[in-house]
Structures are given as C-alpha cells and as structure tokens.
Design a protein around this nucleic acid. Structure first.
Length: 596
RNA sequence: GCGGCUGUAGCUCAGUGGAUAGAGCAGCAGACUUCGGAUCUGCGGGUCGGGAGUUCGAAUCUUCCCAGCCGCACCA
C-alpha cells in the first residue's frame, strides 16, 4: 500500500530567518536546520541573477562531491538549454554576476556548476555554539507538541521464546519512539502481545498429549518451545491435532476453567522471559494490552462492522468485502464462532483511536503482513472513519535462516549472551581500564546487536550470521561507541572545562571542516528518519560522524601545551562531537559509555 | 495465476534525477617513540539483474522481461 504522507512536518523544509551578521550564539529552541540560513543565502544569490522560481533553485542546489570544489553547487544544464550556451560558460558568467556577501565568501564556476564557498570559520562557530548551548536537545524540536503517536511494536507471539526474529520490530519500534519523542510528540508505546489464539490451543494440546510428567508450575519457556516444536512435527502426521488445538482455543475463549488455567500458565511463563529480554535491551512499554485484552471488545467490533454496513454473513462466517479496494475479503468470525487475528486487530485499532485520539498510529510489523494491514485499514475506512489514513504499517524484511516451527530458532538470549561475553573477553585481553565490566558488556554487547539491525534499511531481509554480528570492527555499534569513549577519554585527559568562547577560526584543517559539516547535518538526518520511519538514516549518519571524528583524531593532535588557543578550539569541537554522537546513539536506543 | 518487496564490488550494504557510483568485511601492504590500534592510510576489485523508453543528464523515473523472497478468506 502507499504509506500516508509525512506527518505534516514543516521541520525539514522550514527556513528559519537568516542569522544577522555577528549574531551571538544562535537561539533556536526548535533546533531545526541550524545552517539553513547558509543555503538560503546561496539560493537568494542565485535567484537574483537567474530567471527561476526559488523552489526550483532550492531543489537543484547540492553539495559538490569534494569540499575543495565548494560548499554548495548549482548545476547549470537546465539554463544551458534555455539560453543556448554551454553550461560551463553560463556557470562562469553567473559567478561573476552574483552578489558575494557574508556568509558567502566566494562564487566560482567549476565546469558546468556554479559553486559557492561559505565562511567556514563562521559556520563552524555557529554549529559548535549551537551544540554547546542545546546539548542533548541538539537536533530535537517541538513540531510534535500536542500530537500523539501510538506505536505498536515488538508485539511477539509469546507461545514461542524471544527469537532473534522478534528483535527487528522491537528495536525499530523503540527507535521510532525515541525519534518521535525527540521531535516533541507524545508517544504511546504499545506491546500488542500475541497472547491469544490457536497457538495457545496448540500448546495445550501438546501438554495434554506429551506433557504427562511435566511440572507445569515450573515449566520454562524452553519446555514450552519443545512442546511447540513437537506439536508441529506430530501434526504433520496427524492433522486431527490441528482440530484439537482449535477446539482448545475455543474453550479458552469460552472461559472453560481448565483451558483458562493452562493458558494463564503459559502466558505468565512467557511474559517473564520476555520481560527479562526487554530489560536487557532497555526497552519498555506504556501498554502491554495484548490480544487477550481485547477479548471483551471483539463482539462490539463485529457489531460495529455490521452497523456500519460493511460486514455480512456468508456461508456461516462473518466477513467484510473489500473488493472496492481491490483486496480480498477479510474474515471477522469463523464458522465455529471463534474470532481471528483481524478481529482482534480491528477491536484494538478502534479502542486505540477512542483511547488516544492519535495523530498517527504506527504498526511496526513484518512485511509478510502487508496485506493484513491493507485490509485492516481499508476496513476502518469503509466503516467511515476518516482517521483511516492516519494508520501506517511500518514494515520490515524478515531475518532468514531460521524456522521456529522446526526448532532452528536462534534465541535472542543466546545472541546477546555471546555478544556480551565477547565484550568481556576483549576488555580482559586488552586490559582496558573499565571498572564496571558487566555494565559495559551489556551496553556494548547489546549495542552491537541493536546497531546491526538498525543499520540496514528496514525493508531488506537479513541473513542471520554469527560471524558478522559478532564482528566489532568497521561499521558497527562498538565502532561508534568506541569513537565516543575515546573522545570522552580525551576530554578527561584535558581536565579543564570546555570553553564555549574558544576561537574556532583556528580550525582550518579539512578534517575539522568535514567533521563540523557532519555535526551540522544531524538535525536534518533526524527529520528524514522520522518522515520515512527509517532509523537506518540515523545510523548511517552516525557512522559518518564517527568516521569524520576518527579521521580528525588520527591526523591532528588536540591537546598541545605549546598552543593553548588551538587546544581550546579543538576541545570544543571534540566536546560537540561527543555530544552529538551520544544524542544519535540515544535515538537508536544505544548507550554511550565513557569508557569501554 | 494475481499482487507486493528485493536485485549495486567476492561478501554485507550506502547512494536528494546531476560532477570520477561510495563504505565496511574479507585479502594484501602500511601508520605518528606523546591524546585509547574496537583506530587510521593505501592497493586490488563494478555489464548498478537485462532490454526499451522519458530527460541536456538515469543506479535513481516509466515500461517489459529475468531471478530470489513474501502474500493471496475459517493460522497469527
């Protein structure tokens, strides 16, 4: 389906009023594009000499491939066609015509491009001043004030243990929570637990058949999982087991005491296990209203579907015809009277709108359920609710190489455990100066797994690979965290307070300029990430900042007793970098340890 | 069969219609006798799945193929 448009942001395209010359540290509580005034000035300069709408110029201006070619570039191909002269000729003519005034320092024709150089010291001063004054709020905004976003994520089927496959929804959803909160939205985190349905009937059937000697009260999730796998194995030979499972599920729905007690037991055991994993991940929810929560609302939902004239009875089932949306019909009640996944999701969606009056509801659920959500949203639209277009399915590719029904599930607990152990090993082998080893092992070990997941665009499938996920070098979570820790170490060594009034015009090295530019671009990366519901935009920007930081660090000495002024300026840059990296890590729900 | 997603270096992936398609991993060769080597530098490696079209300009947009994955009413 076509996702609804962005949340009506004006954040990313907003043009704050240009900063007057000599302005003091910029006050912008919104924290929007700090330097868009530079782009504005460039566009103004072009607009004054070219017969093109401002918006078109804005669209066309882009950064040149190399910093020594300029800071902003305007391609002249289009003009060449209209003016019947070569683009290169036009570019150099325009270069001599445009008004060059601060903060633009120079305009130059570079081949077919009209390139601009800005006042870099001033640019750097503004970025660093802004980061210093806004701190953890650099990149944040209040565009979401008064708006509520409901995010449904993680939402595991708790008849199975927490597998690595569940991780994607959990970390993408939690990152979106951080992003939207950062942009000022009120965010309601909902874990729509899959604690209902035939899968529990299967577990009950399995325990009835093969769980004779099992101590049900102390059964672990692993025991449950063995039952689950065994059920699917046996059901291949004996399909009547499936009927039995459906019957047990119906008895749960009908409040049969025995069925209910068994269901409750399985649910409690699973939930305890899941909570342990959430604690490890640092993930929490505002609502744990799972499918069972909507039990009493199912009849109402089906009734409403009837009353609005969208549902009808057909051959013993209740369904909603969606042919007008080119979608297959959606079943709300089976012929045995039991409800389905779609029924519960419909009830949940209606409940959520009533309860939260959301500006947007986001479902972070795998791409295999694309059709399901198209049907769900089409159903509420057909029921006449105009908020149907505020519902978004944020889908993602699945993790391949595991089949939970066959028992080849990779458990999240094992992955996190091995990752954390690896961190401990590294700390011991390298004799690193870390006193809280367990805490750092958790931060870095978990961070590695989380980052691996969030650093790819969410739609892509992931092939699970131990070697790859346990590699901490290159474009990885530990790499970024290490960069941060090393900057912190540098500041510790410096030992004095950071001086926000340091003379940053001394920062003339290419690596310093490059680093400042990546810091400046952070707020707009945050915007794009939220607009596209795509945390990987934050992670790839984070990698850029880390790379720029490491290149700077490698080539230039920061603390130089012989040059205190330069030291102060570089310390300010280092401090700003460490702050922005920490902000970005926070948006990915990763810790920023100061030593590791 | 119908629909959707994906296809870029050996592998994993970036890539606003614009300048010489970039990173990391793996491989090889290197780095400051002082700020942390989980770092940095260099080298090799590309029919951007294929064809056609639109455009001054296409990895990017349109269309037709091909391949892989996913989905298509009594599972979730």
């Amino acid at each position: 389906m076509t996702p609804p448009g962005p949340l009506g942001y004006n954040h990313c395209s907003a043009r704050p009023t240009p900063v007057p010359l000599g302005a003091e540290p910029i006050e912008d509580p919104g924290g929007a594009d700090a330097m868009s005034s530079y782009l504005d000035q460039v566009v103004d300069a072009i607009a004054a000499v070219v017969e093109l709408p401002r918006e078109e110029i804005m669209e066309a201006v882009q950064p040149p491939p190399s910093p020594d070619m300029g800071d902003y570039g305007f391609p002249c191909f289009q003009l060449a066609k209209a003016l019947r002269r070569s683009p290169a000729q036009i570019a150099s003519e325009l270069a001599s015509q445009v008004q060059v005034r601060p903060p633009i320092r120079e305009a130059r024709g570079v081949g077919p491009y009209l390139n601009f150089f800005v006042d870099r010291p001033r640019f750097i001063a503004e970025v660093l001043g802004r980061v210093h004054s806004l701190g953890t709020q650099f990149g944040a905004s209040d565009e979401g004030a008064g708006k509520t976003v409901v995010i449904d994520y993680s939402s595991p089927n708790i008849a199975k243990p927490f597998g690595i496959g569940h991780l994607r929804s959990t970390v993408i959803g939690h990152s979106l929570y951080q992003l939207f909160r950062f942009l000022g939205y009120r965010v309601v985190r909902v874990n729509h637990l899959g604690d209902w349905g035939t899968q529990f009937g299967k577990l009950i059937t399995a325990v009835k058949h093969w769980g004779g000697g099992m101590d049900l009260a102390s059964a672990t999730v692993e025991d449950q999982y063995r039952l689950y796998v065994r059920f699917h194995k046996e059901a291949e030979a004996d399909p009547s087991l499936e009927d039995e499972a459906r019957a047990w599920h119906r008895r749960v729905e009908e409040h049969d005491p025995e069925a209910r007690a068994l269901w409750q037991m399985f649910r409690d055991a699973s939930l305890a296990d899941f909570r342990r994993m959430y604690d490890l991940l640092g993930v929490d929810f505002d609502s744990w209203a799972g499918e069972s929560f909507y039990e009493d609302l199912l009849d109402d939902a089906v009734r409403l579907a009837f009353e609005t004239g969208v549902a009808r009875e057909d051959q013993g089932v209740i369904l909603v015809d969606l042919s007008e949306y080119d979608l297959p019909p959606c079943l709300l009640r089976k012929s045995d009277g039991a409800t389905l996944y779609a029924t519960r999701d419909l009830a949940a969606l209606l409940y959520r709108y009533r309860t939260y009056q959301f500006h947007r509801v986001i479902y972070v659920v795998g791409a295999p359920q694309n059709l399901h959500f198209q049907q769900l949203f089409a159903m509420v639209r057909k029921m006449g609710f105009d908020w149907a277009d505020r519902c978004v399915h944020v889908n993602f590719g699945h993790i391949r190489g595991m089949k939970s029904r066959e028992g080849s599930l990779v458990l999240l607990e094992d992955v996190l455990g091995r990752s954390m152990q690896l961190v401990r090993d590294i700390i011991r082998e390298r004799q690193l100066d870390v006193d809280n080893v367990d805490e750092v092992a958790r931060q870095v070990g978990v961070g590695a797994i989380v980052f691996a997941d969030l650093s790819r665009r969410r739609i892509k499938d992931i092939e699970f690979n131990w070697d790859e996920i346990l590699n901490f070098e290159g474009e990885t979570g530990p790499y970024v965290q290490y960069t941060h820790a090393r900057l912190c170490s540098l500041l510790r060594k410096y030992g004095e307070p950071v001086d926000p009034s340091a003379d940053v015009s001394l920062l003339g090295e290419p690596e310093e300029w490059q680093l400042a530019r990546t810091l400046e671009a952070f707020p707009s990366a945050v915007c794009r990430a939220a607009e596209q519901y795509e945390p990987s935009i934050v992670s790839s920007h984070l990698l850029e900042m880390a790379a720029a930081s490491n290149q700077f660090y490698q080539r230039h000495r920061v603390i130089d007793p012989a040059n205190p002024a330069l030291t102060r300026a570089r310390v300010l840059l280092v401090d700003a970098t460490r702050r922005v990296i920490a902000n970005a890590l926070g948006l990915l729900n990763m810790a920023a340890p100061e030593r590791m």
